[in-house]
Amino acid sequence: MTAAVLFQKVSRHFGNVRAVDGVDLSIAEGEFFAMLGPSGSGKTTCLRLMAGFEQPTDGHIEIFGETAEGVPPYRRNVNTVFQDYALFPHLSILDNVAYGLMVKGVGREERRKAAEDALAMVKLPGYGVRKPGQLSGGQRQRVALARALVNRPKVLLLDEPLGALDLKLREQMQEELKSLQKSLGITFVFVTHDQGEALSMADRIAVFNNGKIQQLGTPEDIYKRPQTRFVADFVGSSNVLSSATLAKLGISAGAASLRPEAIQIGTSWAELLTLSGTVVACSFLGAVNRITVDCDGQRIIISAPAAMPVPEQGANITLAFSRNDMHVMEQA
């Protein structure tokens, strides 16, 4: 099967800034693909390369097997939901949604009907007569979505579409987006710098840093088996064990990651690895307690179920964990 979007060694440089630097990726048709990374890591630039607003300095891009370089945005069957929504202020909501069909020459009645259906799909039926200025942020976001989806694009690009919404609305929209994607079967490429959002929504995630992909894999891969220190740090509060700590455990490696919830306190079975240390801090986070332990200069965070007894600050405790929960990383 041809990939929906294919990047081969794609770079985009702005003068000295390497916004995107030798990226290889292949997004499958129907996939929900997330691009995750800190600010300035090149996510938006990647998206703009797919949409056609930027041209690669180097490398090759294909969309469903067809070369995309030199093809203007208006000839790509790819649509974007912009970070600031970019609704046309002079047009009504209905005309905004129908815009793509209008410029393609679809008749008035037909496009009105299609636009109304699209508005109903994003749960804004009857909002067509309003102007963008009369909608809330969340509503504008839905209009932007409807305006893109009405064109039935082969790929939908979303640039931090939930960035401006409050937490509750955000969670609600995450679910709606996910189920929309499932029912329409359109390939979604979703940019975010919120790891929770990427982990909960995506089929696969690419973690970006400095214009390069650090790791590409399923949410489980990324979460449980970070391959670099950067991914481990960025994706969650994974512990990164130093080579000195690893040596104490009889392992010789540069670094390894260990999830906080994989560590137990006090238990000591033969098959588990153990470390001892001093409790530095405890905090209560509802369902779990977060315990910070110092093991000869190595900080380790433990996430323990709230039902477990909490050790006193300054107490000496033993940490135990399975070798299988630990992932040796390339030094990065």
Binding site: I63, F64, V71, P72, R75, V78, K154
Partner: peptide, 27 residues
């Protein structure tokens, strides 16, 4: 819907305006 297509990249449209638009976009 007539305008909805299954092509991922739409063919170049003829017509002077469109050709000029393509040219200006490239240059």
């Amino acid at each position: 819907m007539s305008a909805v297509t299954h092509q991922s990249i739409l063919p170049e449209r003829s017509g002077l305006a469109r050709r000029l638009s393509d040219f200006l976009w490239r240059h």
